Simulated scan of single mutants.
Amino acid sequence: MKVFKIVLGVSLFVLISAFTLTKSEMSGYEIGDKATDFKLKNVDDKMVSLSDYKDVKGYIVIFTCNHCPYAVAYEDRIIALDKKYKKLGYPVLAINPNNPEVQEKDSFELMKVRAKEKGFTFPYLFDEGQKIYPQYGATKTPHVYVLQKTKEGNIVKYIGAIDDNHADEEAVKVKYVENAVDALLKNKEVSVKVTKAIGCSIKA
């Protein structure tokens, strides 16, 4: 009987452990975490990594997609972010985290079409196998991560929304990403580090 209880206890522990996520698996990166590099296919069929950018100060990593109306509403603002900050050392890298088997409008071939239609000035990468977005903890499209390049690695400095009004660019009062990058460029602390990302759920 005692042996049975021990075996049962061990079995329950293994079962619970198998379905228990670690802190990082549950929430992804937090402010101050070091983001690991990735290697993803761009719409030009070339592979892109953070390490390809030798002389940058950081990155604006944005999880976005083709079909989501929130993502579409932000496309011009994302292009504007890249044009403004790429020359200052913070380029945009956009990543499509969606599974095209679940949402066919987010296929790699249609990513190419969308990037050409909108004239994307930044890499538009496909998270094939959906391996990168869970590491970051992205849940929406769009969902932004501002990373600062340091000797210790690429440190997460801001997570969340691009600004405070997805519906109307002219009504925006707080530009979260711009404020974060501007602070980092001045070697200052980011005042608002985390906001709620507003958008479509990622299609896994």
Rank of each mutant, 00 (worst) to 15 (best):
T195D: 09
P69D: 04
K193H: 00
K46H: 09
D106V: 06
Q130R: 10
N187P: 06
G153S: 12
L147M: 06
L147T: 04
A204N: 14
I6E: 13
S107P: 09
G119D: 01
Y136A: 01
F122N: 09
V172Y: 02
E101G: 12
T121V: 09
P142I: 14
I132T: 05
V43L: 02
V113I: 10
Y85H: 04
T141F: 13
Y158C: 01
A18F: 13
V10W: 09
G199V: 07
V48M: 00
K34R: 11
V113S: 10
E101H: 11
I78V: 15
K105A: 15
L8V: 14
K83R: 14
H166P: 13
Y90M: 12
S191P: 00
D52C: 10
E170T: 09
K188S: 07
K83V: 11
F13V: 15
V72F: 10
I16H: 11
K131R: 07
A80S: 15
K149N: 11
D163H: 05
M111N: 05
K41H: 00
V72I: 15
E170V: 04
E109T: 00
E189V: 05
R77D: 15
K151S: 15
D168S: 03
L88Q: 15
V144N: 01
L8C: 13
N165G: 03
K54L: 11
Y85W: 09
T195N: 05
Y53V: 10
K2F: 13
V48S: 00
F122Y: 15
I6N: 09
K112P: 01
V194N: 02
K87P: 00
M47P: 01
T141A: 10
N99I: 05
Y70T: 03
A161W: 01
E152L: 11
N179S: 10
L185N: 03
V172N: 00
M111G: 06
P134T: 07
L125K: 02
V146Y: 07
V144A: 01
P134H: 01
K118Y: 13
V190T: 00
K173R: 06
P69Q: 03
V172R: 01
K86G: 06
E169T: 11
T20C: 07
K193P: 03
K193E: 09
I198M: 10
K83Q: 15
F126I: 03
K112I: 11
S49R: 06
P123C: 03
T64D: 11
L21T: 01
M47K: 14
I16P: 05
K203M: 08
A18G: 12
A197L: 02
I198H: 07
K23N: 13
G28H: 05
K105M: 11
D127R: 08
L88D: 14
A161L: 03
G89E: 12
K186T: 02
L15P: 08
Y133G: 03
G119N: 06
E75K: 08
E178C: 00
V113L: 10
K196G: 05
Y90P: 11
K54C: 14
F13A: 15
N154V: 03
N99Y: 09
L125I: 05
P97L: 14
C65S: 12
L125H: 10
G119C: 06
T195I: 08
H143Q: 02
S201F: 15
N165R: 01
D164S: 03
E101Q: 13
E109D: 10
V113N: 06
K23E: 14
N66H: 06
L8N: 08
P123T: 05
G129P: 04
G160F: 07
L110G: 01
I159Q: 02
T22I: 09
